[in-house]
Design a protein around this nucleic acid. Structure first.
Lengths: 201, 201
DNA sequence: CCCATTTCTTGAACCGGATTAAGTTTTTCT
DNA sequence: AGAAAAACTTAATCCGGTTCAAGAAATGGG
């Protein structure tokens, strides 16, 4: 059980058998069906979720009542509202399954205990948060420096499998534009493929 | 020396005298003048900087040749290109002093040694990166959900001192719009203040 | 297998904010 | 103090992308 998670942790730090056993004894397992919520706005986020397989999304409802996707989590990613989780404050986010998913999770007590008893986990999460922060700054850079069309092209070149995996309207939301505009970009790309010479005129 | 930094660390974790002494022995000190660079695009980032006082900015040159500010660091903030720093890869960023600033910094060897010898520092940085990541997701949320004018108003309500501290064209860049547009927003705000009743018509 | 729901597409009208260009004010340096 | 550089303002024009509306296609649950 949780072999994928243990393997993921061991890519970054060493865990002896006792530590792995302790960790496994505190991990909880959850199956969620597509569209099932793990967190709703106004509730306190009580878990740090690890996606064994499947896909989650974290989103807000904006002032026009529309869903705005802030983050996705796929296989081998952690997801939580860390501010709500750590400080026991009501969350402004929703977390929902995009696909039927299999999750491992730690509640707050388990997370705290494990960080105390297994110092390597502090290293593990330090590295993960450092990378998540770096990735998030890169995302801000793309938001600032690229047009919406360029952002879509860049993203679909870098994560072609992911583009196949989620509905287009969710991808549009994540990239910061409308589904209608994404349709237009794709229509343009198809037209360009059909008559490649026209791109050069 | 470095009392501010030690105090900052001790807000999050315990450090005994020996650990504090070890840390201080590895910290280096640097004064930088306004506009002086700490990192230029194409170079490897060799330090993790802590701002004792002053202000730094991290920016890129976009495809139109203009500076795009990604992040600021003021008193008691760490700043680095962590990807470049950790993996010894050429950076795509510039780091420059916005004001004359006093810095403490750790080079890669010192950072590695200290993280190994003082496990609490892993906890300290884990917490800081977790918060930085959370803050960065909030920033993405504002980028997605607010108009540029709303973003300026929100930011200047939340960080009024900071708005006073940096040139307007840098603030405009950080918030993702042009200096001309910021001028327009401010002109509008002044007009509204002069004739408050007109806001209600 | 079929109906309901979800997702995707297309086009016309519109708008938030960029661009360009010129002038003004403020700061800095000697 | 005086000149140069840096920072800010204003206004006209333009465009990337949204909004709105309606229909078409795909998906899925009973």
């Amino acid at each position: 059980m949780y072999e994928n998670l243990l393997a993921h942790i061991r890519k970054y730090v060493n865990l002896d058998d006792a530590e792995a056993a302790l960790l496994q004894s505190r991990l909880q397992h959850q199956q969620v069906k597509k569209k099932q919520h793990l967190l709703k706005e106004g509730r306190v986020c009580t878990a740090n979720y690890f996606v064994l397989n499947g896909c989650l999304r974290l989103y807000v409802i904006n002032n026009k009542g529309a869903e705005q996707i802030i983050q996705f989590a796929i296989d081998n990613w952690w997801m939580s509202d860390y501010d709500s989780f750590d400080r026991h404050r009501p969350s402004g986010f929703h977390i929902q399954a995009v696909e039927n998913s299999e999750l491992a999770f730690l509640d707050k007590a388990a997370q705290t205990e494990l960080l105390n008893k297994i110092p390597q986990l502090e290293s593990y999460f330090r590295v993960l948060f450092q990378r998540a922060y770096t990735a998030s700054l890169m995302r801000l850079q793309y938001m600032f420096c690229l047009t919406k069309e360029e952002r879509y092209i860049h993203f679909s070149n870098n994560f072609p499998e992911f583009v196949q995996r989620v509905p287009q309207y969710m991808l549009a939301s994540f990239l910061g534009f409308t589904p209608e505009f994404l349709s237009k970009i794709r229509a343009k790309a198809v037209a360009a493929k059909r008559q490649p010479s026209s791109r050069r005129r």
